[in-house]
Design a binder for these strands. Structure first.
Lengths: 225, 225
DNA sequence: TAGATTGTTAATCGATTAACAATC
DNA sequence: TAGATTGTTAATCGATTAACAATC
């Protein structure tokens, strides 16, 4: 919760620390050293200490870190200690998957509404949340405390919808559409580009295959030179 | 398609280059310079040239890059020029969302089957793909050419299922379960941890808010010192 | 040829790791 | 007190950017 621009790399590691600490907490572990945590998480102890000290000294020399305290401090840093109103734009499978994931609500992400343009979906209820007509979007945002919009619609409609969301006063867009959105500087966009993730996977599968082939060749050459 | 260990950062940028080149191709653009592409993508021209030259010289001095050629070369690098058999483990909303995304098939990711343990889902057909009983998993993998498994099941069941997949000979796991999987070195795991993505978003929303408050304070102090 | 733009080397910047003094 | 482990500084490593010679 400090200033002086924390690096993106650090931020992206915090949720993973949070997850591991949550599991330790469930297992009844009271304290942990950076060394033990490092072994569990497969990162260096140095990195853990360095990362945490961006936000203050949460540990104690000779003791380590109190799991529950650190867990709650990271929650504060990530803003999980306060509620965030969330709407889902696009009530297809992906939108419904998000709506159905109860853990988000446990972390303070309150699903206020879902929207779609498909008449077959409008009116249906997913986990207690009604799917509304996308035309009702602007008044809904104005009347409800909504910070975040998850955008789970086709990429062709995404830029126009992003504009509407920004104009309606949304603070952040969780973008699942396969396109880059253009928004003002003070609106946060977090992209989840599944196709890019799958391509990275594909690259890694192929290079793994190549590596294995090369090894096989080398082995064959050794045997029969 | 070269060796000498390409950095992860480079790989993760390739799919985005690929996406932009695909759009340029659709728009009928024949050639583009690193400078123009850099302006479009909001990255430095230097980085584009540096990234591409990891894999060979695709451009031409004084001309730039041929869009179609570069597009196809990146496809080769990413392994999109050959088919990848894919199965989906977990036929809930998320699994169905993946099954319904036609673009994956256009990139060579062929959905061979879907699996679930829920009797209400088994037998249903999603985009021509039947949902099968998870007990049929091993023989199915043995008989069909399956490289990749998308894992869209709850985290409690994920580790056990990952073991089964590895034993059955799967090459890569596209992991949507909120947990880290332990697999042998030659099995690729690509994680999509949505909850971590949402927490990063939350952090950024909160720090944006803080920044604005600070600015407001500063402005107020100036006015009334 | 002159202009444009790459490929590539060198310089800078930032992130990670190592080391250790401070201290519980 | 002695041992353990943090917080933090310094060293290393890697990634990004700048610069420019090569060349189309």
């Amino acid at each position: 919760m400090e200033q002086k621009q924390i690096s993106k790399a650090v931020i992206s590691r915090l949720p993973r620390y949070y997850r591991y600490l949550g599991e330790l907490l469930e297992d009844g572990v009271e304290r942990i050293s950076s060394g033990e945590l490092s072994a569990k998480m497969k990162v260096t102890a140095s990195q853990i200490r360095q990362d945490l000290n961006n936000f203050g000294g949460f540990g104690q020399q000779g003791y380590g870190y109190n799991v529950k305290y650190l867990y709650m401090e990271i929650a504060k840093i990530l803003g999980l200690d306060r509620p965030h109103g969330l709407i889902i734009i696009g009530a297809g499978n992906l939108g419904q998957a998000i709506a159905n994931y109860t853990n988000f609500e446990r972390r303070g992400f309150i699903i206020k509404g879902m929207f779609d343009i498909n008449p077959a979906l409008i009116g249906r209820v997913v986990r207690g949340v009604e799917i509304r007509d996308a035309r009702e979007l602007e008044p809904f945002i104005a009347e409800n405390d909504v910070q975040i919009a998850a955008l789970t619609i086709p990429k062709t409609m995404a830029p126009e919808m992003a504009d509407r969301l920004v104009k309606a006063g949304i603070k952040a867009i969780w973008n699942f559409a396969h396109t880059d959105l253009v928004v003002p500087d003070d609106v946060v966009v977090e992209n989840v580009h599944l196709s890019e993730s799958l391509m990275r996977l594909s690259y890694r599968v192929c290079s793994m295959q190549e590596q294995k082939e090369k090894e096989r060749e080398r082995a064959a050459k050794k045997k029969r030179p």
